[in-house]
Amino acid sequence: MDTAHLVDLLLAVGMVVLALQVVSERAVLRSIILFVVFGLVMALAWTRLQAPDLALAEAAIGAGVTGALMMMAWRRLLIINPDQPADTPRGRSRVAVPVALLAAALVATIGLSALNIDPHANGAGLIALDELTDTSLGNPVTGVLLLFRNLDTLLEMAVLLIALLGARAVSTPAHPNEAAVVETSAPLVGALLAILVPLSILIATHLLLAGTNEPGGAFQAGAVLAAGGVALVLTARLQPGERPGVVTQLAVTAGLLAFVGIGVGIMAFGEKLLVLPGTWAIYVIETAMMVSIGLTLALLFAGAPALVGRPK
């Protein structure tokens, strides 16, 4: 067994063990932390499967953003009621174990039997690689997302917006304690932020631009941008606001506005629906999407309709 396979084995075992712990760990907070670790292991697994786009996305979105969201939600629960009883899994549902075993067996059978199947000769993947040569894009995943199957991406942005709108719609009046955010005025934090935030913007921009030819793209970039926003929220440099202003709304909807504007507006020029007029359109749309994703995730993290600067 060579090293590569050993790594694979470790990753596989790690996935299973971590997943088991995430689900069965006594303290919820530890579950969340283990989930983030699980996400990082997943990211490694994606690289082993030669899918660097997914590795980036898993690390930034799956582990990073989801973990941060979970953590923040847990913190809110604690603020609202500090005496939250520890949650331990109990054998509540008698069907749970059989169902789980059945599910695992089912999935394993079909997954393994699927390994024998060769990629379809007329499969979409091969055609995508063919079509890619007609475009100026180097990354086939970006090609699929923004050119070949861009309706999926457009509607996915809609899903993200719905999540934000939904979170606003179902929010109930906040608990008074929740407003009390840890105010950190330590100089070190300021210095850290001064590096972290520009860095996140830089990395995001790089991921965005690289995404046309190399791994990366609007989603990963948006997640990194969101990380910068999260840092600002955590240190109370940005604070939850009550009513979203026009700028917030514009930034949140920018991705969809650009996408719909170009993809549907193109019909006025006699083109077909969702045909993008050129590489510039891809850049415009991706930039707008990055801004929207970043802000949407930051807003969801802050649990508020808007973010405002720190009152002087």
């Binding site: 070949f148 199957r149 861009n150 993809g263 077909k272 629906l273 045909v275």
Partner: peptide, 10 residues
């Protein structure tokens, strides 16, 4: 949509 027909397009 986007003038791509199946199996690639939608």
């Amino acid at each position: 949509l986007a003038e791509f027909t199946p199996p690639l397009g939608i």
